[in-house]
Design a protein around this nucleic acid. Sequence first.
RNA 1: GCGGGGGUUGCCGAGUCAGGAAAAGGCGCAGGGCUUAAGACCCUGUCCCGAAGGGGUCCGAGGGUUCAAAUCCCUCCCCCCGCACCA
Length: 932
Amino acid sequence: MDFREIERKWQREWEKHGIFHADPSEKEKFFITIPYPYLNGNLHAGHTRTFTIGDAVARYMRMLGYNVLFPMGFHVTGTPIIGLAELIEKRDERTIDVYTKFHDVPYDDLIQLTTPEKIVEYFSREAENALRMIGFSIDWRRKFTTMDEAYQRFIEWQYWKLKEKNLIVKGSHPVRYCPHDDNPVEDHDLLAGESATIVEFTVIKFRLEDSDIILPCATLRPETVFGVTNIWLKPETYVIVRVDGERWMVSRKAYEKLKFTDKNVEFVKEVDAGSFFGRYAVNPVTGRKVPVLPAEFVDPDNATGVVMSVPAHAPFDYVAIKDLERSGILEMYGIGRDVIEKLKPVVLIEIEGEKHVVPAEAITEELGIKNQNDVELLDRATKLVYKREFHRGVMMENTGKYSGMKVSIAKDRVHEDLIKSGNGDVFYEFSEKPVICRCGTECVVKVVKDQWFLNYSNPEWKEKVLEWLEKMRIIPEYYKEEFRNKIEWLKDKACARRKGLGTRIPWDREWLIESLSDSTIYMAYYIIARHINSGRLSPENLTPELLDHVILGIGDPGTVSKRSGVDPDFVKSLRNEFDYWYPVDLRSSGKDLVANHLLFFLFHHIALFPEEYWPRAIAVNGFVSLEGKKMSKSKGPLLTLRRAVSEFGADVTRMYILHASEYDSDADWKRKDVESLSAHLARLYSLAEEYYLKEPEDITDLDRWLISRFQRAVRETREAMNNLQTRRAVNVAFFEVMNDIRWYLRRGGKNLSIILDDWLRLLAPFTPHICEEIWHWKHDSFISLQPYPDYDESKVSPELEVAERYLEALIDDINEVKKFVERPSRVYIAFAEGWKREALRVARSKSNMKEVMKELMKDERLRKISKDVQSFLRRAFREGEELMEIDEERIVRNAKEFIEKETGLELIIDSEMIPEEKMRASMPGKPAIYIE
RNA sequence: GCGGGGGUUGCCGAGUCAGGAAAAGGCGCAGGGCUUAAGACCCUGUCCCGAAGGGGUCCGAGGGUUCAAAUCCCUCCCCCCGCACCA
């Protein structure tokens, strides 16, 4: 049988009948969205996971009777598409290779894609085809791209709204930057230093005595400013530069870096550090005068190249002073030895409950550090001291107003105070070096000036988001904590760019709205997009008044109609439509979007909409790897959705991906596993061929058993789907039902068709095509629109289920014993003595196992065989009352033939033939067995 | 470092919140059945021992609580992900 042919057939039928088009109705609505994909390549297995989960839920909810809206659009905002167009234009070898090999774009098509427009056109078409060929139940009338004029109107409207609410502010921020390309660099633009982060140094301005020169000491530990004994410079050439009107002395490298900051920097002259040694500078915080001294460990390529020395807490400083003492360097610069003697470590941090030492001295001795060339050990020592002091340290009384403060707090406080007083500044530096751009140039930290920021740090805004989060459903649940933390951690975000595709900031048209910032509330736009696509609305109609009214209910239809040129009745119906669909009931997404998009999604909804339109639930899922390897869009390996479906079929792909893993854990795509899953689905088909159209014969207990078991599958599948546990759902609905069917057929069941209608409906959200196909052998309706099977308690028969389990266990036991008998031919069976049944019943009258055990364990003799008692009781509790109530003899007699077939033995029920010691092993539910 | 998640049988993974069977399901492997054959399908086994349905060991490591611990408590080790302005 050909899966693909069936799939295409039903996809055509669904489309022809528009069965997934959703419009307001009397029914209760369910609005589910999946983040639209970014179109710098083809959809791949990772998308497949997120989308398939969404589609399974959409289909499930539809079958539960909801009016489900499941729309899709395409994201094209930002720089990658432009970058890709440039690379293709340049015929970049690597790009051509990756796109032909992994994205499956034919070479001749690919080389045509030399403009962003062509790329968007091409990949949106491909994406739509792919999404159609896997059979997602999307309402395609609502598609759009973020470059559409109407969408941009909608974004402009949103940004005006945010501006009105003062949620957009101006500021500067540091970015990783390539001086050669004159552009910020992203991770994938780097040759080296991908893991480098931008570190913020505090600059503390020490003024040189009798001079206007400032020595800007860069430090990561501003709180130790109270313990500065001297200043270090490397004995080499430095420069004097004018920085915002001040004269700074910094390393040459530092000067280069300063040019990229938001400061006004002017070169003055070169100077020799040597001529400054022995001079004094003033600590702006303590007023203490400290000498300027030489040290080799100073790295001119790190921050300003000017270092304040805190020998009590900084192992480097401590060791460097020791080195000075031992060497003749001071004499070389004509500095008296008395200077050294004044460099006594000033301890300013204590750790409660520990004895007072000079930390840098202690650690240096402990690690056996000899001199400042022991860089590795010194780095380790520095970290150790920092770690201890940061977490457990408290500022001592010699730190003025910071005295008694925790170091972790004092650190930030001192930093802020320095900046406020004008005695401090910041200097950005990479945490690791070098950071090198793909063009080969070493990157710098650039401070972008006057940029627009979304003011996420706004405490009221945050508070509202945090409060709403508590009311939301987050799946899986433990992600709520993650969201809580991320919301608290979120800082202002730059929302403007110079380069890329996108919408201009309406009040400052030099800037483009950055891609994550234009994707926050676009779910609302699906409702409008439908009418743009049908031609009933044009972009010009989307005036602020219209959007205000439709989305927020502001104004009256009459006025809105005049301003927008839209018929008043249509204005009203748009408003009703919006009000019907909003809010988003579920946003289901990959876990990579938690710390960005999903946060912004919440923040923006909460800022802009009234509470009744705030999102109700968010679900998060993991990634997909390929044969254990991480997929990569830009390097491969990659499995496109299209390739997966053409090779394995839509249903197989869907079911595999749904069953491969749960929630945020990652799935691995293994070709072999996918293939064997294909066989399982084929089995479903052949079972249907054999049984679906067969009229049931007389209904037996075995049939009732199957129906009973099936009820439980229905219940658990529903429960799983209500929690978005697709793996569990598929496991139960498909594999466990399949196992029951195996037993049913093995037992001689003939009426499989009694559950097939329900089974197909149970599976329809996961493997809709094959279910639709089989369903139509008997019905004219679409299974996709049928009601989902309901759990029917009245069809559950615990007795029958216990009876079957009893039988299975009995056969197992007989086969087990059989192994030990030479040439076995007969099995004798006898049932447990009445007194055992009675004892069990008494014990069972207690409410739970714990109670019973407690009671029974008081008896010393029972205690000795507690394990036996345990297994005895466990089973009783598991099986329930029914274990005592079943008529063992009847079950065995009825299944005599079956037992004989399964064991190959003649079965005789006769207690006379069973030796005493075998009889002892019997329990209710476990007859005595004797084989000869 | 901070935050979140995790370590179960050859592999993937349930089970942990509410303590009570070597522990669902899938995959792999082995044996058997069916078949002209292959495939598909069906059955059995897959930690160790066992000539009677049993026994032993086991859930990252080590302690503890309990009649009973993968599950509760304490200590420790290891792994994955995020830490941004990028979609």
